[in-house]
Simulated scan of single mutants.
Amino acid sequence: MEKGHIVLIISLLVNVLLLGTGSYVVRNIGGLEVVKTKMQSATSPNKDSAYYFTKKSVFEHSSISNIDKVFIGDSISDYGEFQEYFPGEVVLNRGIRNDWTKGVLNRIQEVVDRNPKEAYLMIGVNDIRYGTEAEVFKSNVEKIVDSFEGKDTSLAIQSILPVNNGLLGNEVTNDKVKRFNIILQKIADDKGIEYIDLHSSFTDKNGQLNKQFTGDGLHLNGKGYEVWVDRLRSK
């Protein structure tokens, strides 16, 4: 066998081995969605994001009115089919994947102007991922809440959910989640609005996001959304 053919065969075998190893690693860290999430963490949330600005534009050009409920937040809200849980009501999803408090503040007026009966805000896990200072986080949330001043909307702040570090890794710690939730609860108390503790409904005995509710340690599966909605129905 010629030397060139041997080199080609060895090269092909090495590439197959690397491809197989890469696929195995991707599967074991939670799949392509987790890899994409981790790659996004290399830059600021929604900086020059086509998805963010497309969704924001779609929201702003909607003519829907007489809103019963609206859910505002990041991917954890974005992935939820909330309208299916509240038949007979007009329910909007204003979650945008990878969003943070600054991004929500930049688009909240569209929600406010629709004067929904109820609004549910869940935001903060990406602020933790991207290193937002606690005071900046607090200021942004306060501005979001203040946007509803003078409106008839009943606004509720929902706690940030726990994460499962065994699946997600350590870019978000549950200690930081708890500290940011303390800030959220204090804002709600100071502003006289409702604070909904979802965090405690999702933790396991070790304080992690229970694996039965997630596939990647951060986002919820269908069972997780059922728990979330049941919690809102029972409040």
Results as ranks from 00 to 15, higher is better:
residue 29 I to V: 15
residue 69 K to P: 08
residue 166 G to C: 02
residue 109 Q to G: 02
residue 153 T to L: 03
residue 4 G to I: 14
residue 233 R to G: 00
residue 19 L to V: 12
residue 156 A to G: 01
residue 42 A to P: 01
residue 90 V to R: 12
residue 42 A to L: 15
residue 2 E to M: 04
residue 144 I to W: 07
residue 233 R to L: 11
residue 109 Q to D: 14
residue 158 Q to Y: 00
residue 95 G to S: 09
residue 19 L to E: 03
residue 183 I to Q: 10
residue 216 D to F: 09
residue 87 P to E: 11
residue 157 I to Y: 01
residue 77 S to Y: 04
residue 9 I to F: 14
residue 118 E to G: 00
residue 13 L to S: 11
residue 190 D to N: 13
residue 182 I to H: 06
residue 98 N to C: 10
residue 133 E to P: 04
residue 177 V to R: 07
residue 129 R to E: 13
residue 52 Y to K: 09
residue 46 N to L: 12
residue 84 E to R: 13
residue 164 N to G: 02
residue 177 V to I: 13
residue 99 D to C: 08
residue 114 R to L: 15
residue 62 S to M: 15
residue 90 V to G: 03
residue 222 G to D: 15
residue 98 N to L: 11
residue 12 L to D: 00
residue 3 K to T: 07
residue 64 I to D: 15
residue 26 V to S: 01
residue 57 S to I: 09
residue 42 A to E: 12
residue 85 Y to E: 04
residue 214 T to N: 09
residue 171 E to L: 09
residue 7 V to C: 03
residue 118 E to R: 12
residue 233 R to P: 01
residue 171 E to A: 01
residue 215 G to K: 14
residue 102 K to N: 12
residue 111 V to L: 02
residue 163 V to S: 03
residue 216 D to C: 09
residue 231 R to S: 09
residue 20 G to V: 08
residue 138 K to E: 15
residue 62 S to G: 15
residue 108 I to R: 08
residue 9 I to Y: 13
residue 227 V to T: 08
residue 234 S to K: 15
residue 148 F to Q: 01
residue 43 T to L: 12
residue 60 E to W: 04
residue 108 I to Q: 05
residue 46 N to C: 14
residue 100 W to E: 14
residue 204 D to W: 08
residue 62 S to T: 07
residue 213 F to K: 02
residue 47 K to P: 02
residue 186 K to C: 00
residue 141 V to Q: 06
residue 207 G to P: 11
residue 45 P to R: 07
residue 68 D to R: 05
residue 95 G to R: 04
residue 77 S to T: 15
residue 121 L to W: 04
residue 191 K to F: 04
residue 12 L to T: 08
residue 223 K to W: 02
residue 178 K to V: 13
residue 131 G to P: 12
residue 192 G to K: 05
residue 49 S to C: 14
residue 97 R to P: 03
residue 92 L to V: 09
residue 211 K to S: 14
residue 130 Y to D: 06
residue 29 I to L: 04
residue 79 Y to P: 02
residue 205 K to M: 11
residue 132 T to D: 05
residue 25 V to Q: 05
residue 186 K to E: 14
residue 231 R to F: 00
residue 113 D to V: 07
residue 195 Y to T: 03
residue 7 V to F: 13
residue 233 R to C: 02
residue 128 I to V: 11
residue 91 V to I: 12
residue 227 V to D: 08
residue 32 L to I: 15
residue 212 Q to C: 07
residue 144 I to K: 08
residue 54 T to H: 12
residue 70 V to S: 07
residue 187 I to A: 08
